[in-house]
């Protein structure tokens, strides 16, 4: 009987939402707009660990004249891994992807990750604000089809601590954007919790191009 009770408790705690303790908070979620990266043109040295594969190379993010954003990832020698377009209206197009990555879940995961990073309008609708008393962090939440996107800041909304894409109960992806220079983060990190899929981007500032 005791074991049954313990099992139930474990089961219950495992099912409990990690966001349940957050308290409703007043606040204006427009304050996080200042963290929206200004990707006019940014080149990052990029490392990707996916399951047992490691890829590295250069990732270019560029805003196009039609207001869409292109993200192109190629290795150091110029072999392209993927070329995505994120339209201003939320549409998405794959211009190119290598066979090895050309799988629906991979493309969908990359799409969602970069939509959060770019703070696209489509992932920032119907926002609400919550507060974590224990950590003094403010959660700017936006409902998604199967969970939420959270932009988590200090209590004064001066610093973007991290971002999370969640299921209804727990984080699915944790992301960071740090060390902004001229509106562009110097470091971006994307880490998936359910399976091994990590992306690390470090901006190349001394590149000799154009």
């Amino acid at each position: 009987m005791r074991y049954l009770l313990i099992s139930c408790l474990v089961l219950f705690s495992a099912c409990a939402s990690q966001y349940k303790h957050l308290q409703q908070s007043s606040g204006d979620n427009s304050c996080i707009q200042k963290f929206k990266p200004d990707f006019t043109r940014a080149l990052y040295y990029t490392e990707v660990n996916v399951t047992n594969n490691y890829l590295s190379g250069l990732l270019l993010i560029k805003k196009m004249p039609d207001s869409s954003t292109r993200i192109v990832f190629s290795n150091q020698s110029g072999f392209k891994f993927f070329d995505f377009e994120f339209a201003a209206n939320g549409d998405f197009k794959v211009y190119y992807i290598i066979d090895k990555l050309d799988k629906k879940p991979v493309i969908l995961t990359l799409r969602k990750d970069f939509e959060i990073v770019m703070m696209q309008d489509k992932v920032m609708q119907n926002g609400f604000v919550k507060y974590d008393i224990a950590t003094a962090l403010r959660y700017y939440g936006f409902p998604e089809e199967k969970g939420y996107n959270y932009y988590i800041t200090d209590s004064a909304c001066n610093q973007l601590v991290r971002m999370e894409r969640t299921s209804s109960r727990k984080p699915v992806v944790k992301l960071i954007m740090q060390n902004y220079k001229n509106g562009i983060p110097d470091t971006i990190g994307i880490s998936h919790t359910g399976f091994k899929f990590d992306i690390g981007l470090k901006r190349l500032e001394n590149e000799n191009s154009n």
Partner: peptide, 16 residues
């Protein structure tokens, strides 16, 4: 000198 030209993006990435 290596130049990667992305035609549709009118972009050139140079490495050495």
């Amino acid at each position: 000198v290596q130049e990667k030209n992305l035609s549709m993006l009118s972009e050139k990435i140079t490495s050495k």
